[in-house]
Amino acid sequence: MGDNMSELLNVKNLKTYFFTKYGTVKAVDGVSFKVDKGETFGIVGESGCGKSITALSIMRLVPDPPGRIVGGEIVLEGEDILKISDNEMRKVRGKKISMILQDPMTSLNPVFTIGIQLEEAIKIHQGLKGRSLRERAIELLEMVQISSAAVRYKNWPHQLSGGMRQRVIGAISVSSEPRLLIADEPTTALDATIQVQFLRLLRELQEKTGVGLVFITHDFGIIARMCQRAAVMYAGRIVETGSVRDLFDNPSHPYTAALMRSLPKLEEKVERLASIEGQPPPLNDDIQGCRFAERCTVAEHQCRLSYPDETEISDGHFVSCWKF
């Protein structure tokens, strides 16, 4: 019971499929994970593994058609948000769950000032008006370390740098003090130095507001820096979940282990980084077995027949592999 009190988000067996001319693409196929209050949970995986669709599914913003959430539960603070009406969900968005998108250059509307775009979010969920609305907007800009916020408030997006825009988006996202913030590769489009700044800012925002953070990335370095726990996704499934320490020190799924081997290490000088042979399977194939089997060096007959259940190999460290 004590465990439940700290639980913020519980995604159970989430399935999001895309129904296209070329067949059904199972972009997310039975994903489960939990996020505690105030925790930072990472989802790591290569492009196309379904991590962004997982995020959009939690927001219930999967483009429909062609996409649809076909199964599972998304329990936010005890309530399954897949069961509520569209209108109720709209009130959850921005207020309880918010999201930061990957590309700050396109995430702000070019024809409105950042002040207007920030105020819009505050107005919807907090009903502030006039002077107090403006003050709150400027306060938020200061919180994300925009200098001379009162002037910047009147700027259009194109007058701001990429890093600044991403901070404005950060301000919009936390404007109504959401319980859960999903950051979908928020630093991928930023310069390395700006990345570090933005990550630090996210951590500060989290400390101030106690928001639970789902951090989606393909960068293990960011996972190590930001997260307490993380999940590794492959071809629409989570293959391994655990504390960041578990994942780095004891990567147990062959895919995780292979990824770890392919990371460059400071202390070793190698000619060529290790790579994983082959490509991820197309997601519209009906694969019965483990999706990594074709590329796995230790796969056996069993691996191709059916998908392995999740096994807890140590406290809170789960692996979906027939080897365990």
Partner: peptide, 28 residues
């Protein structure tokens, strides 16, 4: 576009997304 997605993320009503955020840009 991403900014329309962002507007929806903020919880903006769909009619406002269309008539305010999308229309003004499309009219360009």
């Amino acid at each position: 576009s991403e900014f329309v997605k962002m507007a929806r993320i903020k919880g903006v009503r769909e009619s406002v997304v269309i008539w305010k955020h999308a229309l003004r840009n499309s009219l360009l």
